[in-house]
Amino acid sequence: MSTMALPTYSLWSRDLKHFLRQRSRVVGAVGQPFVIWIFLAAGFRGSFSASGMDYGAWLFPGIILLIALFAAIFSTISIIEDRKSGFLQGVITSPATRASIIWSKMLSGTTIAIAQSLLFMILLPFTGIGLTAEGFALSFLMLTAASMMLTLLGFILAWNMSSTQGFHAIMNLLLIPMWLLSGAFFPTEGASGWMQTVMMLNPMYYITALFQQLFFLGSTITFPAGPAPWISVTVLAAVSILLYLYSLRIVRTS
């Protein structure tokens, strides 16, 4: 226990201290999605129609997922910095289990993602969305699980990278399409046939569909039906387990 729980707590709390002590990171994390949401919502307001909803309201859960996606994955960039600064070698030579490195990153990435998403929720009253307590609880539970999965994805990529610039480049190449093709930015039903096929190969599509359904749960808004919830949960669980097992393998063998 002392080689797992306490080291995990140590590394998790250290990551949070880093985040809170970098004011520009906090401001950027909250400001960027706010700006994106305002501009997209205002820009597409007159040309968007889905379930009779305002585009700003429709896009709102998608922006929360965007926040979680970027926050979770970019939190793992600290692995590259820790390796460069020499901090990681101190962790590796300690009795802490290698799994504690994965868990600490998974928890810190998820904590930061959820905290940023909750901050963004301040804008909820301006959307006209009547979020229910049940919808809030279930959607954020779902968001927590999704953030863990996304942090694992970032962890694997960061563990094998030697430069933060390279990580940024690869992440932008991967993240933007993952989000654009998740159904968060535009409804799946309106997309062309091949695009729908591509979207269905994207795990974010299943996460987004379930998150949107849960977010509007119990409200007067009826969200377009996506894949069955059990399919989304299965995809999320399966991808998470695979990513975790692969993470464990790379930290134990490198």
């Binding site: 002392s2 306490l6 250290r14 970098q22 901090f87």
Partner: peptide
């Protein structure tokens, strides 16, 4: 090469390191 975290204080570095050793 140093294995200290430059963003933390000396005490925080010591405390975090000790936790890696279960202390």
């Amino acid at each position: 090469s140093p294995s200290l975290d430059p963003h933390l204080t000396a005490f925080e570095n010591i405390r975090h390191h000790a936790m890696l050793y279960g202390l």
